[in-house]
């Protein structure tokens, strides 16, 4: 079954997905290092361990489709094709960054490139997604939007209203809940489960699915179906990618709300290693080829770090620019 799915993906595409997952891992490991070294003023949320959810989902899109992200969004940006230099520069708060150093890790956006932005407000992207979907519909083109949010966002009032409107207006949006089991310290299992979250879809009146979010192929298959459905005018879907965040919630976290054993169990299900094993077992790649992809990703990130560190700070004279459009 897995083997059959592996073979539906060309070698070039598989290589690209591996590259994107490794680039995400490398970006975030570097982000963590830079932060520890005191080079970053601000906060960050790492998605290490969730790479298959971002890459598998976004791999189903055409280049001119859209995504809307959330605060844990580095992987989403990278999967959408972000320039790693500009991303790293934004993380460093530099003028060359995607948001000219104004937004930082939590607000990386590339509107021209179809990335409508991460969001500092949990659930903040969901109502926007309805409007984006409706706008795309009005424009009459065949583009779709993937709207990502966390299990925590699913508990907000914004989620409920957004689902209602999305179904009412039949917008071409795939809502993707990355259930990484916790909202900060609050365990999703205390108020819901991936099954129940997926079940919301039926209550609202749209197709729903739950995936093994650490299995790239599983994610990809479910999202592909929902994307095709949206593109064909079938309206929204809700998908729950069941995954796990390895690192603390943000820069500081004592992990008091979970056990080391739980973390290690999920690390056994490393989404990158799982996909790598599958494609090697299938004979699509040799281990050496994948080592090269991995190495290449880390080299790219090292270049991005140098680019970011050598980039200019924004000028204070420019500080009041950009509040209003002319």
């Amino acid at each position: 079954m897995q083997e059959e799915k592996v073979r539906t993906i060309s070698k070039a595409e598989a290589a690209e997905m591996l590259r994107l997952m490794y680039a995400t891992r490398a970006f975030e490991e570097q982000a963590e290092k830079s932060y520890m070294m005191g080079k970053i003023h601000g906060t960050m949320h790492l998605s290490i361990g969730q790479e298959a959810s971002a890459v598998g989902s976004i791999s189903t899109l055409d280049p001119d489709d859209y995504i809307l992200g959330h605060h844990r969004g580095h992987g989403l940006c990278i999967a959408k094709g972000a320039d790693l230099n500009l991303m790293m520069a934004e993380f460093y708060g530099k003028e060359a960054g995607y948001c000219r150093g104004r937004g930082g890790s939590m607000h990386i956006a590339d509107v021209a490139g179809g990335n409508l932005g991460a969001n500092g407000v949990v659930g903040g992207g969901l109502p926007l997604a309805v409007g984006v979907g409706y706008g795309l519909k009005m424009r009459g083109d065949k583009r779709v939007l993937l709207s990502f949010f966390g299990d925590g966002a699913a508990s907000t009032g914004a989620f409920h209203e957004s689902m209602i409107l999305a179904v009412l207006y039949q917008v071409p949006v795939v809502f993707i809940c990355e259930n990484n089991q916790y909202a900060m310290s609050f365990p999703a299992r205390k108020w819901t489960s991936s099954e129940r979250l997926a079940g919301f879809a039926d209550s609202y009146g749209m197709p729903g699915a739950m995936t093994d979010g650490n299995n790239l192929l599983d994610v990809r298959e479910a999202v592909q179906k929902a994307v095709d459905h949206a593109r064909a005018g079938g309206g929204p879907s809700l998908i729950i990618n069941n995954t796990y965040r390895w690192r603390g919630h943000s820069k500081s976290d004592r992990n008091r709300y979970r056990t080391q054993q739980e973390i290690e169990e999920w690390q056994e299900a490393d989404p990158i290693r799982r996909y790598r094993k599958l494609v090697v077992a299938d004979g699509l790649f040799t281990d050496e080829e994948i080592d090269d992809i991995e190495k290449g990703a880390y080299e790219q990130i090292e270049l991005a770090r140098v680019f970011a560190e050598e980039s200019e700070e924004p000028s204070v004279e420019s500080i009041e620019e950009g509040v209003y459009a002319p």
Binding site: H41, G42, G93, C99, G101, R102, G103, V316, I319, V323
Partner: peptide, 16 residues
């Protein structure tokens, strides 16, 4: 405070 949202960059943030 200046008539702007609070920016991320350290220098801009201080200046805001």
């Amino acid at each position: 405070g200046r008539d702007i949202p609070i920016p991320y960059n350290r220098t801009l943030e201080l200046s805001a």
